[in-house]
């Protein structure tokens, strides 16, 4: 793809995103914001799972911490502007990651997965029990949503769903782009080599625990962004949608269904889940039943996920061999 094509692609993408709410209306704009939140969340999980080979069953704790951080800050600090509120949520998630990472960078495999399940549940129980701070089961809701403002220049009302759509898509889109950029940097390539063979990485002069720590904190920070936007979007964050174990499972499922082998797989997975949820919830309340069945089918028959399946089809029917030069292939 040459430069011109790239610019055209970007222009088309941005135009679609800009026109989307006008064409599809507010209901589907909100569906899209939800999708974008989970797309970012899944991408951050894939940074650990797909790129570094670390399976986390507690990624929700960063999502939830980001959400609670923003919500509690807005509830208690009068006149707190929008971006600092998001930043507080992100910093809360980063702080949690910094506390955990001395333990987490030393383990991998099942131990890593289980420690996260354990600490994730601890956060869930704490959110339920520390009522004074977290509001217990009801969560923190109804906090003021500040306008997006540049003092003296403009102030955009964020309680207007259309305005919020543009704000959320900008923040989430930039975050995804940043992570994509990160995977292309030298540190991103050290990350992939840690997954392949962490012992050899050390014998080539790289510091494995430190590298893991940076990735871990980065994944936590952007999961915090997703959580923060989610809290603003719902004007509510509760233990059930911030810290529940299903919130940790959701991005894993998205990564698996979309395709663990690429950067865009998780985004595809988030889209597939969004569509399935939208469709099945019209007919049944048991959305998770469908999700569970799909997950089982994917693991059994398409372990490389939707993108892997597409690639297989391409190879099979069009005789095109998968391009091995692309660095997008992380699996």
């Amino acid at each position: 793809m040459n430069k011109t094509q790239k610019w055209i692609l970007w222009a088309v993408l941005l135009t679609i995103l800009a026109l989307y709410p006008i064409v599809f209306g507010i209901y589907y704009s909100n569906v899209f914001v939800t999708f974008a939140i989970f797309a970012l969340f899944a991408v951050t999980l894939n940074l650990l799972l797909g790129y570094t080979g670390l399976l986390s069953f507690g990624h929700a704790m960063f999502f939830g911490t980001g959400g609670y951080g923003t919500a509690i800050a807005l509830e208690h600090i009068e006149g707190l502007p929008l971006l600092p509120a998001v930043l507080i949520g992100v910093l809360a998630a980063v702080a949690l990651a910094l506390i955990l990472c001395p333990i987490m960078v030393r383990v991998s495999g099942t131990a890593f997965a289980m420690l996260h399940l354990a600490f994730g549940q601890l956060m869930y129980v704490l959110a339920l029990k520390l009522r004074v701070i977290t509001g217990g089961e009801d969560g923190v809701g109804g906090f003021p949503i500040p306008p997006f403002s540049i003092p003296g220049i403009l102030s955009i009302d964020m309680t207007n769903p259309l305005n919020f759509y543009y704000f959320a898509i900008a923040v989430l889109g930039l975050s995804i782009w940043f992570i994509w950029y990160f995977t292309k940097t030298p540190l991103g390539s050290v990350m992939v080599s840690v997954r392949d063979n962490d012992n050899r990485v050390a014998y080539m002069g790289f510091m494995v625990p430190q590298t893991k720590a940076i990735i871990y904190v980065l994944a936590a920070a952007f999961a915090g962004v997703a959580g923060s936007i989610y809290a603003l979007f719902q004007n509510l964050i509760a233990a059930g949608d911030g810290f529940h174990i299903l919130v940790s499972f959701a991005p894993i499922m998205m990564v698996m269904v979309g395709g663990i082998g690429s950067f865009f797989g998780p985004i595809m997975g988030a889209a597939i889940f969004g569509i399935i949820e939208e469709l099945t919830s019209r007919y049944t309340e048991r959305v998770e039943l469908v999700m569970g069945l799909i997950l089982i089918l994917v693991i059994m028959f398409a372990p490389l996920g939707f993108l892997g399946f597409l690639r297989y089809i391409k190879e099979r029917w069009f005789g095109k061999r998968p391009d091995m030069t692309t660095t997008e292939d992380v699996a």
Binding site: P186, L187, G188, S193, V201, M207, M324
Partner: peptide, 24 residues
């Protein structure tokens, strides 16, 4: 690094030699 290409394998060494370890 079995899932990385021969080029990427060697490149890790070159990066290390040049002291490019945490560049993001």
């Amino acid at each position: 690094f079995s899932r990385m290409t021969a080029f990427q394998n060697i490149r890790m060494g070159i990066l290390s030699k040049r002291g490019i370890r945490f560049n993001m």
